[in-house]
Amino acid sequence: MRLRRTWGRRRTGLLALGAAVLLSGCGIRTTSVPVDAGAAPSRVPCTVPGEASATGVQSGVPLRVYLVCGAQLDAVERRSPLPEEKAAGDRVRTASALLAQLESEPSDEERRAGFATAVKGPLVVSAGRAGDPKGTLRLSRQPEDLPPTALAQIVCTFAESAAGEPGGSGAAADSVVLGGPGPYGPRRYSCTTELKERPESAVPSSPAGR
């Protein structure tokens, strides 16, 4: 009986040793400590095939909007039916056209490339009120009440277009002054690299200067 138990223990040890040898032979290092390999890499391409060539043959004003792809913000090229002569120099018209593009569902090609939008209507943009800093745009909802990803899309899209041109000296680049329908003063929202990488985080903002 004692001999059988000794052989059983030896057999178990040999099996464990054999498993370790096989794992090391496959290039897998055994460890008793859990390893955090990080998030799984995104498999979506985030590139619309033929995007550049398609925009060259379509009519309308070329627009650049930020959509969500792979949990980040990525820009796509669109065309607005707004006549160019009406869009030129009119920040509110430009912002309205951009907002309409953000609210619209991605095309079949964009969906296949992994794009989506968090901006849901109805949402309207208008000019600032008397006493607002120059260049202010007001939304029909308070910016801070919007989902963070939706606000990040709006801020980056507006900031990197004619709608987000700095309104005064010393204004930060890649920013836009936004307010809402309430009696609250507008704030300057910035589109940063970190925001594009993590659009679900709070959008950087600061008090808007006069």
Rank of each mutant, 00 (worst) to 15 (best):
T94C: 13
S96P: 02
T117F: 08
V57I: 15
R112S: 14
E77C: 03
T149L: 00
R91L: 12
R79N: 15
E105G: 12
R112Y: 14
A152L: 09
D74V: 06
T136D: 03
R111E: 15
R64H: 15
Q72F: 05
A97Q: 07
G56Y: 04
S96V: 10
C69F: 02
V119M: 10
P133M: 01
P81A: 06
A54N: 15
S104Q: 13
T136C: 00
T136Y: 00
R138N: 09
P148D: 11
A52D: 15
P133W: 00
P62D: 14
E109C: 05
G70M: 04
L102Y: 07
R111H: 15
P122I: 00
L98G: 06
K134M: 04
P122T: 02
K86T: 06
K120N: 05
R93Q: 15
P147S: 00
S96N: 06
D132T: 00
A116L: 11
E109F: 08
R138E: 14
T136M: 02
T149P: 01
P122L: 03
G50I: 05
P143K: 03
A75V: 07
T94F: 12
P106A: 14
L63R: 11
S140N: 04
R138D: 12
A88Y: 04
E77G: 09
V48T: 06
T94K: 03
G114W: 02
R93T: 12
A150K: 00
P148W: 02
P143N: 09
V92A: 04
S59C: 08
Q142T: 05
R93H: 09
R78Q: 11
L146W: 08
